[in-house]
Design a protein around this nucleic acid. Structure first.
Length: 279
DNA sequence: AACGCGCCCTGTCCGC
DNA sequence: TGCGGACAGGGCGCGT
């Protein structure tokens, strides 16, 4: 569920509230959200008495750096939430999978209805190594048209599918992939390698724009997403095609259509995103 | 070896 | 009201 803007919002909310706090204890009601290499006991022993030094983001992952030196990476899957316990909405959580008890009686709660999320601990070196498997950061200086074009050239997958591959660009999920393709006027089924440099530059700009705007709006809440205080994001009304099948295209007013690519919905305007190759 | 598919799990909604 | 099926923002493992 959470993509880059949602992970970014959560990271900034948590940063303001838990940096400097120490973890005094850990409870793991649902072990299956821990990476398979962690038992609940070993996980608890590694985390307790650690101090949260920094909260950041890489792709869709919320990254907590701890002292003594250790990195806790949270991938929220579809329904994962990280909420501080003293937020008014914390009481509504019904599927708490991990509780990080903090000094002073507060807690950082990891809630996850579907339990598709994963929490994994790394050393700084291990995390650096693992990050080499993640692709470009869309909001970094390295994310320019040339870098994106070099990568799209190597794949014949439909561009919508390609954008979901975290090894290529990190942080894009189904919502923002579809929104960026609409803005760049590229049909979602176009093979990645069929895009010319001009299309790829438009796509790059569209991705940066939509992600920045969504961060500004604190993310998109369709159903489950909540920020670090348990509150929904505000970007949903600004979506132009995602979830708007049969609705009017905001550009030409024709009907938005849905198509299924690799078992996941793609939303597009058949008029504005016409450049489809025959299938 | 790039790519697509099924699956992990729970909840909601829609048609009958 | 109940029930079955489709669907949901992600990502892994598998087979081809």
């Amino acid at each position: 569920m959470p993509e880059l803007p949602e992970a970014e919002t959560i990271a900034s909310d948590l940063r303001a509230q838990v940096v400097g706090s120490s973890v005094v204890d850990v409870r793991v009601p649902f072990v299956d959200v821990l990476a398979p290499s962690h038992t609940a006991t070993a996980f608890r022993e590694r985390i307790r008495r650690c101090r949260i030094r920094e909260v950041g983001r890489r792709g869709k992952n919320v990254v907590l750096r701890l002292d003594p030196d250790q990195v806790m990476v949270v991938n929220l899957g579809m329904t994962g939430r990280l909420v501080v316990s003293d937020s008014p909405a914390a009481g509504q959580l019904r599927h708490i999978a991990v509780r990080f008890e903090l000094e002073g009686g507060r807690a950082l709660l990891y809630d996850d209805v579907r339990r598709f999320g994963r929490i994994e601990l790394f050393s700084t070196e291990q995390w650096a190594e693992r990050q080499t498997e993640l692709g470009l950061e869309p909001l970094s200086d390295a994310f320019d048209g040339a870098a994106l074009y070099a990568r799209t050239q190597r794949s014949r997958s439909p561009i919508r599918n390609w954008l979901l591959d975290q090894r290529q660009v990190a942080g894009i999920g189904n919502i923002y992939a579809n929104e960026a393709l609409f803005r760049a006027r590229i049909h979602p089924a176009r093979p990645a390698s069929s895009l010319g440099i001009r299309s790829v530059r438009r796509l790059r700009d569209a991705l940066v724009d939509v992600l920045r705007e969504a961060v500004e709006s604190r993310g998109t809440t369709l159903n489950d997403y909540r920020d670090g205080n348990g509150e929904p994001g505000n970007f949903e009304p600004r979506l132009r095609v995602y979830g708007r099948e049969s609705g009017p295209c905001p550009r030409c007013a024709r009907q938005i259509r849905r198509l299924v690519l690799s078992n996941r919905s793609a939303f597009f305007c058949p008029h504005c995103q016409r450049n489809r190759v025959r299938t």
